[in-house]
Write a protein that binds this DNA or RNA. Structure first.
Lengths: 121, 121
DNA sequence: GAAATAGTTGAACAATTGCTCAATTGTTTT
DNA sequence: AAAACAATTGAGCAATTGTTCAACTATTTC
């Protein structure tokens, strides 16, 4: 009796055809995946996570964030630019100050969910 | 009239004391943040995202994943090791094959939430 | 208008990342 | 026991990342 879903050599054909076919369907199109991975990448850095958490409840100026995290304003500014490009934060200018705040409520949810994963072992 | 929450020089004191104090409270302890950032970092790569999605509905062997993603088995194995260390996947051995599956239902939720963030603009 | 201040930007650097290649392990088949 | 095969592992490499430094812009204050 021959099982079509296995017993094939690995080099040429999938070992488990049906499963691979099913798996193929659940993979989003590359464009979505690219954006998705970049969003996660932004959250995949302790400094940027801290910035997100700091901005969760109120806006802060670059200067505040820099002092809070013991970083240079330059470093903070660089990170904020990345986060703005990925639409995690937005900012408003008031005089020479720039006030940043979270741009998307999903971010808080993502972090909350992430915390649950981390703390559940 | 002096406003205690601003009008300080940036080098020495926070510009907005109260806000910074509030922000400080919402930042988790470093240990949690480290784990959190590493979890997001794992999801911050297209290949690993694909693997997660592929394993969302059924288990697959290394060979299947490699063929599905047009990658070497070595590359896949390397990534799976990282993902296992971060408890995104687990595996069972059956003969010479290794079957991998998602280890945590949070991962699917995280990805789903991420997709929503990406597609909502 | 000059000095001071908040923020931005680009170049440069060390550190990290994802992959390839080659060697190796462990299991099955002959 | 030898050959074949799935998977793992370590070294090495190009590419990317996070920060610092220095130069710069823009706004406020003197």
């Amino acid at each position: 009796m021959k099982n079509t879903s296995s017993a094939e050599t690995c080099d040429v054909v999938y070992v488990h055809k049906e499963n691979v076919a099913a798996a193929k369907k659940s993979i989003h199109k590359l464009e979505t995946l690219q954006g998705l991975s970049e969003t996660f990448k932004v959250l995949g850095d302790v400094t940027r996570l801290k910035i997100c958490l700091a901005l969760a409840k109120q806006e802060l100026c670059v200067c505040d964030i820099a002092a809070l995290l013991s970083l240079s304003e330059s470093a903070v500014s660089h990170q904020l630019r990345i986060m703005k490009a990925m639409r995690l934060v937005k900012h408003r200018k008031e005089g020479k100050m720039a006030y940043y705040m979270l741009d998307d409520k999903h971010i808080e949810d993502l972090i909350r969910l992430g915390v649950r994963h981390v703390s559940e072992y």
